[in-house]
Simulated scan of single mutants.
Amino acid sequence: MKNIDYKLLHAFSAVIKLQSFEKAAEFLFLTQPAVSLRIKQLEQLISQPILIRSTPIVATEVGKKLLNHYYQVQQLEADLLPQIFPEDPISPIRISLATNADSLATWLVPVLTPLINKHPIELNLEVANETNTIYKLKDGEVFGAISTQETPLSGCVVDKLGVMNYTLVASPSFKNKFFKQGINKNTLIKAPGLLFDHKDKMHAEFIESEFGLSFGSYPYHIVHSSEAFVTFAKQGLAYCLIAELQIENELKSGELVNLLPNKQLIRTLYWHRWSLVKGVFKKVSDTIIKEGNKVLR
């Protein structure tokens, strides 16, 4: 039976994270040829490639499985070492999780703040569309992910967090300029909307469902920021779907108006994480579930 040498996995992880053999060598205090040799040894061990030498450098499917395994071993080690060597200074624990931008802009950071203040945590938040965060968990980049997917991945478990309600809003001046005669097909083809990125299907699916307009038949801006969504809407630059949690004050003050009072887009969010989660990782996971259930009712 073949055994994996973890120093080879460590080198592999460094190359993927730093996206450079040279930077990985500096990080590991090795020469670049030594790092390349470790990658080659790992590939020879499993008799297949583990990465694609492209820009960016990407792991193959088997490479992703190796990384996923290695990151879980790191998590177990981070939990175990303080128990074995209690007299040693506690090093910060790097915790990586994937989140959608709207959760990050509203409830996630406040609920994690007490834990970060109490434990030596280095938080790494990977932001992606709520339909795509799950792939970062699948690839081993994170230990947990907030996603709209209900079905857990192999080796993972999932809990329902709750729902985020999205409202179609604009500033009063924007409404008066573009939707004075109401919001319909004819007025929408002239009014600029707002998307998070080209993978953002939320806006397109909502407009097509409610008004029968296909994506591309109306103008839109692209802004990679949930906070910027609010700014664009308040400045009268676009109409857009925004999580109600993020604009409660603006709706109350009238700075933003609900364009479709009888219509909402509802997204159910789930928390996916590795089945074997211990220590601080488990505390982070439990906090997200408990507090998420309170906020996302």
Rank of each mutant, 00 (worst) to 15 (best):
N184C: 07
N184D: 11
N184W: 04
K185N: 12
N186T: 06
N186E: 12
N186G: 10
T187Q: 07
T187P: 05
L188E: 00
I189H: 10
K190F: 04
K190S: 04
K190E: 03
A191M: 01
A191D: 02
A191V: 02
G193C: 08
G193S: 14
G193H: 07
L194H: 01
L194S: 01
L194A: 02
L194D: 00
L195Y: 12
L195M: 09
L195G: 01
F196L: 14
F196G: 01
F196Y: 15
D197Q: 05
H198G: 15
H198R: 15
K199E: 13
D200W: 11
D200A: 14
D200P: 10
D200N: 15
D200M: 11
D200E: 15
K201C: 11
K201E: 14
K201P: 02
M202G: 07
M202W: 05
H203I: 14
H203F: 15
A204Y: 13
A204D: 15
E205P: 00
E205H: 09
E205Q: 09
E205I: 05
E205D: 13
E205V: 04
E205G: 03
F206T: 11
I207Y: 04
I207R: 01
I207L: 11
E208D: 11
E208I: 04
E208Q: 12
S209K: 13
S209R: 12
S209A: 14
E210N: 04
E210G: 00
E210F: 04
E210S: 05
F211G: 00
F211K: 00
G212K: 10
L213N: 08
L213I: 15
L213T: 08
S214F: 13
F215I: 05
F215N: 10
G216P: 00
G216C: 05
G216H: 03
G216R: 03
S217Y: 11
S217T: 10
S217R: 10
Y218H: 10
Y218A: 10
Y218N: 08
Y218D: 07
P219V: 13
P219A: 14
P219K: 12
Y220N: 05
Y220G: 02
Y220S: 09
Y220I: 02
Y220V: 07
H221E: 07
H221Y: 14
H221D: 06
I222G: 00
I222M: 06
V223K: 10
H224R: 10
H224A: 12
H224G: 07
S225F: 02
S226W: 06
S226R: 06
S226L: 06
E227K: 15
A228W: 12
F229Q: 06
F229D: 02
V230P: 03
V230Y: 04
T231W: 08
T231D: 13
F232R: 01
A233N: 11
A233I: 06
K234C: 06
K234N: 08
K234R: 10
K234H: 02
Q235C: 02
Q235W: 02
Q235Y: 03
G236E: 02
G236F: 03
